[in-house]
C-alpha cells in the first residue's frame, strides 16, 4: 500500500539546509532561527554534504535552502527576514 510522503514529512518545523564553506549559510541559519523563535516553530539544520540523501529527499541540492515541513520555500538564496516570515506563514496558512 502506498504511503504518502507528504503526510509523513509535513511537520511544523523549519529546516535550514547548509554546508561547509557556504558563504550565506551562517546568515541563513541565524535568520531561520530568529523566525522560528518568533513563530514558535522548531528549527532543524541539515548539512547537505553529510546528509546528502536526506537533502535529496527534500529535493534540495543547493545552499542555503529553507523548508517548512516538506515544502522548500527558499532554494540557494538568502531572503530578507520579512520575506521569510511571509513565506512561512503562507505555507502554514496563518
Amino acid at each position: 500500500m502506498c504511503e504518502s510522503f507528504h503526510q509523513r514529512m509535513l511537520e511544523r518545523k523549519i529546516i535550514v539546509f547548509t554546508m561547509k564553506n557556504c558563504p550565506k549559510c551562517p546568515a541563513a541559519k541565524m535568520l531561520a532561527g530568529e523566525v522560528a523563535d518568533e513563530l514558535g516553530l522548531e528549527l532543524e539544520e541539515v548539512d547537505i554534504e553529510k546528509n546528502m540523501i536526506t537533502a535529496l529527499q527534500y529535493n534540495v541540492a543547493s545552499t542555503p535552502s529553507i523548508a517548512v515541513g516538506d515544502e522548500v520555500i527558499v532554494r540557494g538564496d538568502l531572503p530578507t527576514k520579512t520575506e521569510l516570515r511571509e513565506m512561512i506563514k503562507r505555507v502554514l496558512g496563518c
Partner: peptide
C-alpha cells in the same frame, strides 16, 4: 520506489 520512504532512500 514509490511505496515507502525507506525504499526510496
Amino acid at each position: 520506489l514509490h511505496e515507502s520512504k525507506s525504499a526510496w532512500r
